[in-house]
Nucleic acid binder design. Structure first.
Lengths: 248, 248
DNA sequence: CGCAAGATTGATAAAGATCAAGCCGGGTGG
DNA sequence: CCACCCGGCTTGATCTTTATCAATCTTGCG
């Protein structure tokens, strides 16, 4: 399995073998992190930038009512905190949703990359802009009522993002997200989230069970969710096509 | 009144007089745009980057149901589409909410800045990361129930952002946003939005009327909305303090 | 003056929350 | 090896929030 960071950045920049070698070198020293472990907490000023190589994590914020709002899912190839290199202070926390393989890249390495490799800088820049586009799309989803659509939309998005880093086979992929975590993402109660997921199952669109998602009909699901992948800016459509083919 | 772009970027970077002069030069050629005019539409690939100098605009997306979701308010000093320089294609539209003064900066000028002025690049980078943090905070707000808090939170945010570019005097500022636009932002009906705004008025926290917002008690309002300005990364707190002083 | 956009008010209906209970599956200790 | 226990999923009943529809009011403006 290829390096998911490199795999992802290929979509946003024309990398040379040289660039690939440099990126490969930065993501050498890996470590394992168990489930439900914090990767970073609100308020911290880390000296490393973390990168997810394997597993799922999420950004979240705790509310004074004790509820938590999840603001992003991090999948292989995603940076946890590239932005703190500039902003300094984390304004939210990140926790693993499954056992993860993490790479820590020293801030100096990032600085070196951005000073000396414009193409890589551009690629990293691109990655954060895609993250931004995803946030905008989530806002669109959360504003929506009724709640059936957003959950289907989220599944479409995850399918597409994971396909881009080759984590989807035969229209199915590991999805270590509990219904409570879905609920915290969509701002719904657990009960209602359950209803919505069963609704998708009843409609033969997708089954989310046993930490695995099976997309029965991606075509139909995208129509149901009014999903268009353009905001993910994965102009190379091959992986998306692959999902279509496999779930057909 | 100073250039709002420069005023804002001062929060994120240490600019020299040289930098200020360069930025001042890029934002020379201004044009007026009436209310409800599109600045850019989904799908376009503009050759200029647009910057708001005066007035309000918003990012939005239209849903197939005909509803619209507003994803960001643009105030003086904000870029409309800095990101298309990298991503290429707009994945949403931008429309003015009031008459606006706009600056068009050719893409080449931006490229020149990013090639030759690392400090300015860093400042622009910082600005987009702050935009990203704002999007995350909106997600937190939209996930929230009941809906009283998010609307108050939005008012706190606008107060703080506008104070940072000196658009707040005596705890009051121009706010050319209709209740329908608030509704499209918060994912609420117009009627309910109206109730929530009146609720804030009844509580003597804030009055939004006649395209103007009056913050009666910023201290109380922030407590009510559980607002902390840290995500705006305006580490220089002077303008925030000013709001407090003036609305006291 | 009169119109049109926007704000307000009231009555009814639907979406979704909350509370409560039962179920299922897999890990653990006796 | 089996009983039990716990986290997560499912189901049902009731209650709150918020939408929808409909009407009236207010205000800026030509």
């Amino acid at each position: 399995m290829t390096n998911p960071l490199i795999r992802k950045l290929e979509y946003g920049a024309n990398l040379t073998d040289d660039h690939r070698r440099i990126l490969e070198r930065t993501s050498q020293k890996r470590r394992q992190v168990p489930r439900k472990e914090h990767l970073i907490r609100e308020g911290e000023r880390p000296s490393c930038v973390r990168l997810v190589m394997k597993g799922f994590a999420c950004r979240y914020k705790l509310l004074p009512t004790g509820e938590r709002q999840i603001m992003a899912f991090l999948v292989p190839g995603d940076f946890c905190d590239l932005h703190v290199a500039i902003l300094g202070r984390m304004d939210h926390s990140i926790v693993t949703l499954s056992p993860c393989t993490i790479v820590d890249i020293p801030r100096e390495t990032i600085m070196d990359l951005t000073d000396n490799h414009p193409a890589i800088t551009r690629a990293l820049w691109w990655a954060t802009l895609v993250d931004q586009a995803v946030l905008r799309e989530w806002i669109v989803g959360l504003g929506q009522r009724p709640a059936k659509t957003p959950i289907a939309h989220l599944l479409c998005e995850l399918t597409t993002r994971l396909a881009a880093v080759e984590r989807v086979t035969d229209g199915a992929f590991d999805l270590p997200i509990t219904q409570e975590e879905f609920a915290d993402t969509l701002g719904l109660s657990i009960v209602h989230t359950n209803h919505m997921l069963m609704n998708l199952r009843d409609k033969d669109l997708a089954t989310v069970q046993n930490k695995r998602a099976i997309i029965h009909d991606f075509e139909q699901l995208t129509r149901f969710a009014d999903f268009t992948p353009d905001y993910l800016h994965l102009s190379d459509r091959s992986s998306v096509d692959e999902v279509n083919r496999n779930s057909a």
